[in-house]
Amino acid sequence: MAATRPIRLFRNISAKIAAIPMILTAMVVFVGGTAWTVTYSFTSSKLLPKAKFVGLDQYERLWNTPRWLVSLENLLIYGICMMVLSLVLGFVLAALLDQKIRFENTFRTILLYPFALSFIVTGLVWQWLLNPDFGIQSVIHRMGWTSFNFDPLYNADIVIFGVLIAGLWQGTGLVMCLMLAGLRGIDQDIWKAARVDGIPSWKTYIFIVIPMMRPVFITTLVIIASGIVRLYDLIVAQTGGGPGIASDVPAKYVYDYMFQGQNLGQGFAASTMMLLAVLVVVIPWAYLEFGGKKHV
């Protein structure tokens, strides 16, 4: 009896069976839910989903709504600042910790601690700290410098930076830890070689170590980016979107119209635009990252 060739589908059969629930969940919940949402964004659904199609009406209204434009602008400002600042701060902190200092564990713990707090707690803490009557401003006033003015949460022009401060305080510790792990992964021989060649350490960091840490940077970028897109709870806890609508973000717009405004169609249209924005960033990146590998 000649042995039949094993069928490819049945190779590692137990692993494949184990993966079925996850695959089903991903297909039904993520892909199915997304398709459903996009479909119903073309309807005039109010409180309950109704398949009454109205074409692009919801999108037209969305892009004519000042609040949506304000929330996009806020996300853009917050996103760019958060991305750049948390990477820079996180890397600098990690590099400083990497100088074989004493009490490294203690510093690492202190810096990582805010990350253990939820965004809600972070938001509330910073709401008080930035309150002109109770927080930083009043402390400095009491110290005698009464012309000092720092109340970002009550100034529509800079409120998003007040949120950014809280976001950075919470998130930088994690970035630092990831970076530190990356730095520790660099072979000590490279440092020795660089020193023998007389390269100053800042140059070694920028031209040798950072390029070697590319995978760590990409992981960190993905983590930061996902945190930016789903920015919602921090805003709700810290400013409630105020003053006025000055610190609104797309996720809050989606929630408010879907649930409070009893206008599902409008909320779906807004969330579809959020998805589109994410895809615009992710698809080129994924293509570069994974598509290119075949040729290497």
Binding site: K46, L47, T65, D256, Y257, Q260, G261, Q262, N263, Q266
Partner: peptide
């Protein structure tokens, strides 16, 4: 008004 209008 509907809640939608109120929200606007």
């Amino acid at each position: 008004n509907t809640e939608d209008t109120n929200n606007q």
